[in-house]
Design a protein around this nucleic acid. Structure first.
Lengths: 220, 220
DNA sequence: GCTTCCAAGATTGTACAACAATCTGTGAAG
DNA sequence: CTTCACAGATTGTTGTACAATCTTGGAAGC
């Protein structure tokens, strides 16, 4: 009996997509920037065909927008779309929390809480480190771990996608949290969601949305 | 001021994807069937490149599974994956219902209810017609309209995707509902969800899941 | 001066062909 | 009966070419 595909060899398309995704999420390529096939082809040493598949892969992940005969550009979300995105994230995270409560009641076991706590510890480290990108990713990771704990791989997958998009829209924002109190805030959040109440999730996200909105405003 | 892209001309890739999607959802091509690039290329008169992009588009929609060097085949969901899929659908529809309740209270206005009622009427027609495929699609459409009414295009999009997948897994099942009482059942459902209670949604979906599970069992 | 329209240039979409990389099945060797 | 190697099948990637479409700059008309 063999394990089911632990590591399917990466194709050139996948590698290229990975590299571009990385650069986009690092803010190396700003939202709205056109991604020219010919240019990427030259700079990355792949054929235009391969570039095209990598781009359409990223388009499927919504990191780039692809319009026929007009090419691909790094996605640039409107305020309304940001709002919508957060609503969707809320729906998934609230459902994850509800499932966890349904299964474990008001006091979740360590096997559930531990990974999340580890994520929060990593977030605390990142905050001490002070690098904004690290903090953002550590923050996203805390939420991802909460959703993953619910055990629905499908919900976790969808959430993962959205996380990626959220990271993207945060690239334009360089200093969301001045305080450095994120880790502490999330310890409280982890305590509160054990009630299984979706309203707690939505309130938390609404707070984040608010910060994002302000940050975007101050920068346009 | 021009309207924002009402109808971007369809590319060959999009047309081919559309055609394949249609055939897959109609049950014309059974789950598990391999989709050979060369063969599709010949039979549809497109280059292998075009076939490949169409296939990877469908893979992004999860209608086909794509494994490097092994090709694409029509997706075939395990029971666990079906369960997971329903959980995700539940999360989205419950959130849509919650949003609608938040906005409209316990008695939703006609502008919200009308499209859904129209969908239910269409479902009733389909039931009278007796064609199983029509019934399934009309049923899916009722739920889609409920989610769409919530006004979050992002949630609606995600739900649409899942609907497509659900339709796919139903292709293997030819007689879910013997009764022909679907339309009536959904009039009741539409009444009940106006309370905004997600539990109503989950219960309804659980019922559907149960039927799907039995139907799959009796056929393997 | 301003708008309208057209013609290059730029960019993407699709095709054909070829070869490399990888999987799969079949039969020989043990 | 199992293991292994090899040939055939299939996918991954590249190169090139051309068609389809968008974009831009400027000429013509008001």
């Amino acid at each position: 009996m063999t394990a089911p595909d632990p590591a399917p060899r990466p194709t050139a398309k996948a590698l290229l997509a990975e590299e571009l995704r990385e650069r986009i999420l690092d803010g190396d390529i700003a939202p709205g920037t056109p991604l020219r096939e010919e240019e990427l082809s030259r700079s990355h040493g792949h054929s235009r065909h391969t570039v095209r598949s990598a781009l359409s892969q990223l388009a499927a992940e919504r990191l780039v927008q692809f319009i026929p005969y007009r090419g691909a550009r790094v996605a640039d979300l409107s305020d309304a779309e940001v709002e919508d995105l957060q609503a969707l994230r809320g729906a998934l995270e609230a459902e994850a929390v509800r499932l966890l409560h349904e299964r474990h009641g008001d006091a979740w076991p360590d096997e559930v809480l531990s990974p999340v706590r580890a994520g929060i510890d990593a977030l605390a480290d990142a905050e001490r480190g002070g690098d904004w990108l690290d903090i953002t990713r550590a923050h996203a990771d805390v939420h991802r771990r909460i959703v993953a704990a619910a055990g629905s791989s499908r919900i976790a997958d969808s959430y993962e996608q959205l996380n990626s998009e959220t990271l993207l829209l945060l690239t334009a924002v360089r200093s969301l949290y001045a305080s450095g109190a994120l880790a502490e805030e999330h310890r409280g959040y982890l305590r509160d969601i054990q009630s299984g109440d979706g309203a707690v999730v939505r309130e938390h996200l609404a707070h984040t949305s608010q910060l994002i909105r302000e940050a975007r405003r101050s920068r346009s």
